[in-house]
Simulated scan of single mutants.
Amino acid sequence: MFHRTQDEDGRVVEMDNHEILEKIGQSDMVLAGLGEDFDGSAFLGKDERYLAGCGKLKEAGFRWLMPAWNEYCAEKSGNNSVETALERLGEILRGKNFFAVSVSTDSRAADLGRVVMPCGSWKMKQCTGGCGGALSEVTEQDRDRLWHFFEELYRGRLPEENPLSGACPQCGAALVLNNVYAENYDESGYLDQWGLYRKWLQGTLNRRLFVLELGVGMRFPSVVRWPFEKVAFFNQKAYFCRIHEKLYQLTKELSEKGCGISKNAIDWLGEL
């Protein structure tokens, strides 16, 4: 498919999918950024029961359940577009020296392998008060309790009890899911992987680097959007590709070394 878009100054930028895949294949390293599109917003936002549940979770102070609620509703709808897109991205990156940064909270992004998720997901638990070092994995029992909780929520009733089992080993407080929606988000869960990412990034200078930004909006621009622009700007051998339905424009400085595609990133990957 051929794409014809514009940068911030109205300059025409042209590129087709075949050329993009060819450039990725020719690159030494690939830096991929995953954004809000991978939370399934394109189709979940059309489900009134999903939206009603979001409102109830927010009202009850249960926003930390949002990543799990998103995946439950995607599973309930039978829409596998996010999973399919991640699998396709994995195929594109296979055999490449890559690192991915995801501001999506969809846990399936972790299956890419070399990825850091600064916003967390629903696969880890933390202390309500954010006690450092109190992180633990979500168990199968927790998962079953979560899905039962969501079954009730999907029907329109919000259960009052916390669906997670256990208590903080340090202070005895209740546990919540370890993600950016938690009131006292414990960021220690991703810091080791973030260190590996920063070290990997140092090795991209003067290498043929393909920067692929997928569905990244302005929710957390300081994590992916702005740093990726900076990396591409300073690397003379970098090529920058930005996929976003609305915020696809390139800066003037990157217009001659990249392309912007006006499309939902999940749909775009599905077409490759």
Rank of each mutant, 00 (worst) to 15 (best):
N79I: 08
N79G: 07
N80V: 15
S81E: 15
S81G: 01
S81R: 15
V82T: 05
E83D: 03
E83L: 07
E83R: 11
T84A: 02
T84K: 11
T84M: 13
T84G: 00
A85R: 01
A85T: 05
A85Y: 11
E87K: 09
E87N: 13
E87F: 01
E87Y: 03
R88A: 03
L89H: 02
L89C: 08
G90I: 02
E91Q: 14
E91W: 14
I92C: 06
L93P: 00
L93M: 01
R94V: 09
G95I: 05
G95Y: 10
G95N: 10
K96E: 09
K96C: 12
N97I: 06
N97Y: 00
F99T: 03
F99K: 05
F99S: 03
F99H: 00
A100W: 09
A100M: 04
A100L: 02
V101K: 04
V103A: 08
S104Y: 07
S104L: 01
S104R: 07
T105A: 11
T105I: 13
T105E: 10
D106L: 03
S107V: 10
S107I: 08
R108V: 10
R108C: 01
D111E: 12
D111H: 13
L112C: 06
L112W: 02
L112K: 03
G113P: 00
G113L: 03
G113E: 07
G113N: 04
R114G: 02
R114W: 11
R114N: 14
V115T: 04
V115M: 08
V115P: 11
V116D: 11
M117H: 12
M117L: 14
M117D: 02
M117G: 00
P118C: 11
P118A: 15
P118K: 09
P118S: 15
C119Q: 14
C119T: 09
C119M: 11
C119F: 05
C119N: 11
G120W: 11
G120R: 07
G120S: 12
G120C: 06
S121F: 07
W122C: 05
W122Q: 09
W122E: 02
K123C: 00
K123Q: 14
K123N: 08
K123P: 00
M124A: 09
K125E: 05
Q126H: 10
T128Q: 01
T128Y: 09
T128W: 10
G129D: 15
G129W: 15
G130D: 10
G130M: 14
G130L: 10
C131P: 06
C131R: 12
C131K: 07
